[in-house]
Amino acid sequence: MTASTGPQTVTGLRWTRRHLLGLADLSAEEITSILDQAEEFKRLAAAGETKLNALAGTVVANLFFENSTRTRTSFSLAAKRLSADTIDFSSSGSSLSKGETFLDTARNIEAMGATQVVVRHRTPGAPHLLAKSLGVNVLNAGDGTREHPTQALLDIFTIRERRGTLEGLTVALVGDILHSRVARSNIFGLTTLGARVIVCGPATLIPPHIEELGVEVSYNFDDILAEADCINLLRVQFERQRGGFFPSVREYAHLFGMDGPRLRRAKDEVLILAPGPINRGLEITPEVADGGHSVILDQVTNGLMIRMACLYLLNQQNQ
């Protein structure tokens, strides 16, 4: 396949940042810039332009200190689509247990010539530490329970693709809000773009002061079903739990699982999203996951476009 010639920057974008650490600090214009650029990549892909040379000569390093399959694969493919070379570094153990500090590992990767570092780490703020210490672009691919900006961007992109705008829509984030970086990034991005956000889940999994982030809180899924234009079913994060947050999986599924009867009580046009990997039968039944309202696989496709857009826009700042 021949690489097409770039660049394909959408006109009128407002992007001047060197790092993507989270959505908390981004303006509506900045978020829209990423979405518009992703849309352009999606249009090109549909036109058969699947290999672009925009990042030729650059090196994208995937530093994953936590297990991940889809995010890492998605970033890796996004980099390759833009003709960057890629380095994959995975380590699920803590950096201290390996004897080398996190920063030293990252400095080594930088010394190999990486120009962009995609980092996933179990500690909130780990990408900030890299941004402060290294000279490369840093993309947060999930820092502990804080933020996962590209996931929220792809969720938002998917909604915008179907509805045209986020303004005035009601989006319900259902499940484990406390441990969810996807929830935080979605809250920041959605509220910035003018959506109404309801967080819904067991009281033990909704952190204090969450209303101050501009969201409404509900502990009763059935109460909010009829109001939601989009329902994003967050995964129950068994691995992050200190335990004892809810009595049983069965009770969780009973109170907060999205099943056929609940879907029938939701809005006719409701969109069902899930960041995945989904626990079938727990947050979502197969009937819903594979049904006509589900956009779960669109999210995966769009994730690639969003990550291409982020890598591309950050690299523009290095020119």
Binding site: T145, R146, P207, H209, E212, L213
Partner: peptide, 18 residues
Amino acid sequence: SKAVMHDGYYSTLLGMPG
């Protein structure tokens, strides 16, 4: 247990155990 900062608005904002 496992907490690093005061439990409040900022711990929620930053996703850190409080």
